[in-house]
Design a protein around this nucleic acid. Structure first.
Lengths: 135, 135, 135, 135
DNA sequence: GTGGTCTAGACCACC
DNA sequence: GTGGTCTAGACCACG
């Protein structure tokens, strides 16, 4: 079992957070279907070259969110996600993040037009970056 | 001397960071002109109900960025910001923040169209919120 | 982990500055190679007999300069310094310091010849002092 | 009575220190002869656009050094300086400053040759700068 | 264990 | 009055 998760040491972001975001994306995005057996904590820790305690935290957080389930002695599985709940979760989260960025723009005295221009620029840039990724 | 800065205890974000963002916004946004005498460290600390050391850190960070200048025994002043540099700085910063939000969207498997929809929603919401602010 | 840093209580110079200068010297001088794990804040504070906050400030300043990198929960590491940048930095810094001293000389109405004589004297003195150091 | 003293607001150096260095230079350099009446504290404060308390400190420090003398109700005068003491003072001070700079060079792992090169460069640069000054 | 933030209060240097 | 440094100790987040 292997997961397409990458850690970027350069970012100031905590390790556990980077992993959570990516694993959550894989589940909410549908790449990992309900019932899929995830790698063990130790396994994933080794493959990500990080501490087991960090992976443990990731699994625990996602279990609290109801995205995965742990069964004693068996392993950790992807839980079922209702498609509707999935879409809600995604859009809510996204709108929240965009809202933060927009607020910063307003604080810098940007007009809504400037913000929209910047948005188009950022979206284009990220789209091409993403297109170039090896998936 | 009084500054329109508000602290939100609820946010997990560090105190000093909240203050920095807002004060930086006031300077880069042009509300505080070059040469303006800022409130003393102790004064601002009292009005924000936080420690003088926290305010000191804010002033020091902004001085390192070249936005303000301090002289012992005299006080802290707004440094000159070249209008061009200001505009560059603003758009650069804004695009960066929007980029972060967009990246999170992609990680959640959102399509560019969904992201754009969310952006319009967030922009509308923040615009009306802002319209209601007392300026 | 131990660092050859000494604090001179007598000097009017701030503690944090003395430590910064010496640690910066160790990194730019090449004694501390890229990736080296520095002593923890608390550890260094004990060994220098100063407050942890003072050491923290040193580490933070050097991180702002890009000389070291810190990760929460992990520790503080020496960042990569490009050899060319290092040499440039060194000579630039040195010339700057010598310039300050020379300017003081001129203000005291010393002739260039007198300054040169004083320089030879100072260089000889420091060279022999240095030769006597335990390295 | 007017003195060729300039204050540079940009420098982090304390005001009183900038003034002291320049006034001391004028006396030790012989531009101000023994017995010369200096401007009053208030006069000098106005012409330098600084606080009278700052000028007071300058006069007091220089009086402690024996370079000037104050006579109640009469004013402040330049004291006599023995030519030998003058030369000693100057060279001692200069050698000390150069020593500091050299020490920094050694800490950066510069060889004596590199230090000498940097010295020549700095001396040339400062000499030409000085040549261009309006005196 | 590590670093990151924050406090309250001291003492100093400067104007 | 101002800013600048330093301490001792608390609490949190991370690995």
């Amino acid at each position: 079992m292997w997961l397409p998760i990458r850690i970027d040491e350069q970012r100031p972001e905590p390790l556990y957070h980077q992993i959570e975001v990516q694993l959550r994306g894989l589940i909410l995005g549908g790449q990992l279907k309900e019932g899929t057996l995830l790698p063990s904590i130790r396994e994933l820790a080794v493959s990500l070259k990080c501490s087991a305690i960090t992976v443990r935290r990731v699994y625990q957080d996602l279990e609290n969110e109801g995205l995965i389930r742990t069964r004693q002695g068996t392993g950790t599985f992807v839980a079922g996600v209702e498609p509707v709940a999935r879409d809600e979760h995604r859009l809510e989260r996204l709108t929240e993040e965009l809202g933060k960025a927009i607020e910063i723009g307003f604080q810098l005295q940007c007009s809504p037009e400037e913000i929209e221009t910047a948005f188009r620029q950022a979206l284009d840039r990220k789209s091409t970056e993403r297109g170039g990724d090896a998936l």
